[in-house]
Amino acid sequence: MKKILLILVLVVFSCKSAQTLPDPLEAGWEGEKVCEVLSEMKAQRILKCTFPPNVGHQKHYHKPHFGYTLAGSTFQITDLKGTRNVPVATGVNWSKTEISEHEVLNIGDSTAVFLIIEPK
């Protein structure tokens, strides 16, 4: 019984991290918003997130989503895998099927713009 209770407590605390972080719209950088709602409907929300050079996105979580790069740059990304520099090209898309969390910083010399489409 004690073993089952311990496992349950560990599962709850491991899931708690994303729940206590802001979502992409709530998260900003140095008190300023970086994402805006382009469309919100019953089934989905579409965000446009803009990152000039030296602007990032505080640690936040994403629900499963689809993303598209309108304008690329180079980012420093910190997530559960560590910190790395990643060039992100214009026109790149990605999707996540599970909850994820990260913090990013535009270390490039151009403004990056992303669309994030989240099913509700």
Rank of each mutant, 00 (worst) to 15 (best):
P22D: 02
E118T: 15
P24W: 11
Q19F: 14
I99T: 14
Q19Y: 15
G108L: 05
S95M: 10
C35L: 03
R84M: 02
G108Y: 06
P22H: 04
D79N: 06
V86K: 01
M1T: 13
T20N: 13
T74N: 06
G28C: 09
W29E: 09
F75Q: 01
Y61L: 09
S73F: 04
G108A: 05
L115R: 09
D79E: 01
V55I: 15
Q44H: 13
K42G: 09
K59I: 02
Q19W: 15
G91Y: 01
T20M: 15
V92M: 08
A27I: 01
I77D: 00
G67M: 10
A27G: 04
C49G: 08
C49D: 08
P22K: 05
T69S: 08
V55A: 08
G56K: 06
L80W: 07
P87W: 03
K120S: 11
K59G: 01
N54L: 12
T83F: 02
H102T: 04
K2T: 14
E101F: 13
K96I: 14
G82H: 00
K63G: 07
L8D: 02
P24M: 06
L105N: 02
G31E: 13
T111Y: 07
P53L: 13
N54K: 13
T69Y: 06
L6I: 15
I77M: 01
G56Q: 03
F66A: 06
Q44N: 13
E101A: 13
E36S: 12
G91P: 00
E103S: 02
G56D: 03
I4A: 10
Q44L: 15
R84V: 01
L10F: 12
G31S: 13
K16M: 14
G31N: 13
G28N: 10
V104I: 06
K3P: 09
V11H: 07
L105D: 02
P64A: 10
T69V: 15
K48I: 12
F13T: 14
K96C: 10
C35R: 12
I116V: 15
I107S: 03
E30P: 07
G67Y: 05
K33Y: 04
G91A: 00
M1G: 13
F75C: 00
G91T: 00
H65N: 14
A89H: 03
P22N: 04
L38S: 05
K3H: 12
E30M: 09
G82Q: 00
L80H: 09
V92P: 00
V55S: 09
K63D: 11
L5E: 10
K2Q: 13
S17P: 09
I77K: 02
P53D: 12
N93K: 10
T83G: 00
L105P: 00
F75T: 01
L115E: 05
C15F: 09
G82F: 00
F114W: 12
I107Y: 03
I116N: 08
V34L: 08
S14C: 12
F51D: 09
P64F: 05
H57R: 11
L38P: 04
L70F: 07
V86L: 03
W94F: 11
S73G: 04
F114H: 10
C15N: 12
G31V: 14
